[in-house]
């Protein structure tokens, strides 16, 4: 059992929690993730590490309640527990070391890139953070990002806060001002794709973290397969980070939708089972 020591709602239907998992905390590296299970009927749900405290043996997770499992997770309280937490999974992010680093996060991705920003800054590297959200209330981890990064840009699609538009608008501004050596983008696929498309002609090394549907997370099932540079890779063990310029995003999007019908069925089931949780959407 992995106790939740702290839990905060940080945006609508989005929770930040500190979860006990000393073995994972001890080994965690930026770019890695865990797989958690709520209970004995639970699906194995991959979640990025948005931070950790090695001494306290805790992980920081940011969970967006979008479906059957994540909505139930968001509804958990401090003192509750996850049945299973396994990790750290995936390879740590590997970034070229020169010039400015730009970390771009959309949705939970803003939390996922924080550890990379912390590491880069601690290595003395100039680091710029970009947070993208649909609107002001959905902007995540801004305060943390401001604490860590040399500069932070926030973009909102509706212009309710920061720059109106997409993260690529902020990136454009940055690229006009300085030489960027590497970009890390984590978030919804359209965001990662747009960043990749923008930097491909500029030949700026760009890494994205692919959120393929996973089961074991150990390389045993191949459910998480993605196509990168024409080769099939397993996102859980070969990634989740890949070169943004050669990812087959169409395949990723298509595979992410594989269970659309079942997901709807599961949500209906949740409505019957726990209407108060399903309501929260």
């Amino acid at each position: 059992m992995h106790r939740i020591l702290e839990k905060k709602i940080v945006a609508p239907m989005t929770a930040m929690m500190m979860v006990e998992a000393p073995r994972v905390a001890r080994k965690a590296q930026p770019g890695q993730f865990v797989i958690v299970r709520l209970n004995d009927e639970g699906e194995r749900i991959p979640l990025s590490l948005a931070g950790w405290d090695r001494e306290a043996g805790t992980l920081r997770l940011i969970i967006q309640g979008i479906g059957y499992s994540t909505k139930q997770m968001v509804a958990l309280k401090a003192g509750d527990a996850f049945l299973d937490v396994v990790g750290p999974l995936g390879r740590p992010t590997h970034l070229p070391k020169d010039d400015t680093l730009v970390v771009i996060g959309g949705g939970y991705g803003a939390g996922a890139v924080l550890p990379n920003a912390i590491q880069a800054v601690s290595e003395g590297r100039r680091t710029i953070g970009v947070i993208g959200a649909r609107s002001k209330d959905l902007v995540l981890v801004e305060a943390d990002m401001r604490k860590v990064c040399n500069e932070v840009y926030v973009t909102t699609n509706d212009g309710s806060y920061g720059i109106k538009g997409f993260v690529t608008h902020a990136l454009e501004i940055i690229l006009q001002k300085e030489k960027v050596g590497a970009i890390l983008a984590v978030g919804p696929v359209p965001m990662m794709r747009a960043v990749g498309e923008m930097t491909r002609p500029l030949k700026i090394p760009t890494i994205v973290s692919l959120n393929a549907v996973m089961v074991d997370g150990t390389g045993m099932c191949g459910g998480c397969r993605v196509s990168v540079g024409g080769e099939t890779k397993f996102a859980c063990v070969d990634g989740p980070d890949f070169d943004a310029h050669i990812v087959d995003y169409d395949l990723l999007v298509s595979r992410q939708k594989m269970y659309a019908a079942e997901e709807k069925q599961a949500l209906d089931h949740l409505c019957r089972l726990m209407p108060q949780i399903a309501e929260m959407a």
Partner: peptide
């Protein structure tokens, strides 16, 4: 892969979906 298919059913009990959460 057979591993994924069998794991979803044998380990994750997809035969009982949605009571069991894995499809």
């Amino acid at each position: 892969s057979a591993n994924e298919y069998l794991t979803r059913v044998n380990l994750m009990r997809a035969d009982r979906f949605p009571e069991s959460a894995t499809p």
